[in-house]
Design a protein around this nucleic acid. Sequence first.
RNA 1: GGUCCCAUCGUCUAGCCUGGUCUAGGACACUUGGUUUUCAUCCAAGAAACUCGGGUUCAAAUCCCGAUGGGACCGCCA
Length: 511
Amino acid sequence: MKKELLPQEIRTRVAPSPTGPMHIATARVALYNYIFAKQNNGKFILRIEDTDTARSKQEWTDEIITDLKWLGTNWDEGPDIGGKFGPYKQSQKADVYEKYLKQLLNENKAYYCFCSEEELEAKRQDQMTRGVAPIYDGKCSKLSSEEMERNLAEGKKSVIRFKVEKKKVKFHDIISEEVEFDMALLGDIVIAKNLQTALFHFTVVIDDYEMKISHIIRGDDHLSNTARQILIQEAFGFPRPIYAHSPMILNPDRSKMSKRKNDVALASYIKKGYLPEAIINFIALLGWNPGTEKEIFTLSELEKEFSLEKVQKAGAVFNIQKLDNINGYYIREKSIEKLTELCLPYLIEAGLLEKFANNQKIVATGEEITKLKLEKIIFAYKERLKKLSEIVELTDFFFKDKLAYEKELLQWQKMSDSEIKESLLLCDKILDELNQETGEWNIKKMEEVLFPEILKFNLQKSYPENNKGFVMWPLRVALSGKKASASPFEIAEILGKQKTLKRIADAIKLL
RNA sequence: GGUCCCAUCGUCUAGCCUGGUCUAGGACACUUGGUUUUCAUCCAAGAAACUCGGGUUCAAAUCCCGAUGGGACCGCCA
């Protein structure tokens, strides 16, 4: 019986360099790679490209790890660190690169270049002004082996260049389709500073080969790099992976999204209180759609419906309003317990609440806040929340003793101070009659007793009969100190009778 | 400057491959109305686009060519 060929395992990777906070575009590329691997029963790998020792920092590697885990795009492989998968790191593979570097040197496919940076820069400038492509002229490739040996023996500063074949490189791309580059327009590229320090183009090719990466899904900005990397692959006889270059995420002016014009760090979106579900959904939709009218996707739904073929070729402007909208949706979808848990750190960080070590007791201005009460507060604002951080400005008044607002805020339409006072006194009188001990202190009861009184009040004052604002507005401001809030009764119920009446009295004092 | 990529409402996009059903659909944002004490949610409605010019065809958003515009890359960064 004929032995069947095992289908090649699908292996994808995300390869960020830890030279700064993780970019939102990296998150999208990671997502694409993650989904593609999942869809094909493959493996998704995290590789830290930290060959630039001067700029790479461990803290950024840590942030990449934290961010990827936060997103839920966990990788499937890596060195064992305490029973978990760590990331692969290029900085730990210098010996591997050296081996391959020597091979290229021996086969005369790479050579030492002794040109100084100043010399190169001058040539580049000259080429630019002459209107030709600024490429390396291959000067050192023409050095005799004696000259080269002598330079090396003298310890003359050098780099290693790869001999770029002057031919056309054509490759297929899942998103861009057929792409062709004329390599005659590119000079020999520097692939290593020295035998111990290999550079980007080289390490990428070696690692993708050694890690058996089957599909390289990365940003559009790498499109022209791909041609070069293919040439290096060919020099070794490595198989060519399948490429997919996703379009860029753009600033509103349609330039590549950059930190100068936009918030690009995933960490800062996390901090503002965007949910991973929302970020995932939003970045997936940025440049992709299923061809149906469905727009809400969980990660597992994306695993079913996403396809690289349907990814746009053009870049997509990062539209924060859409993100906010999606985030609001996912916030509204959260259970109240979960949402409270998510909001709590923001309230604590703002100094509105304190949480004690046992995590059982939450305190605001010396008073204990029960979990139930906190949940009621969060519930009252759930629909108004676009991002978690907003919970602070929305609900701060619940946790304060004294409210600070301008007297004018109490005014509804053209009410005079004395009319506002009458209105508040009415609230005070009616609400004071409710008995909190017997459970009368609730929204329903308040509506029941106060609404008919409002009607009478309006009639007596010859206000429009159905406009409850003449009572409700001053009450809202008295209780919240804000012009926009949840229902005054909802606030009153949470605040309790004592605090409610105190705030009404405080408001009356202002008039 | 060179090379490559791209081009539908303000934005994300459907439609393009396989021309007619497109009076170009949806979503966000915006405007108006409804619900409502405010804001938000929710519901309803509205305004809003095929970059331009040629060609092919009975017929072009859709196919072809060109122009224009935008972007990316051209490093001893990744």
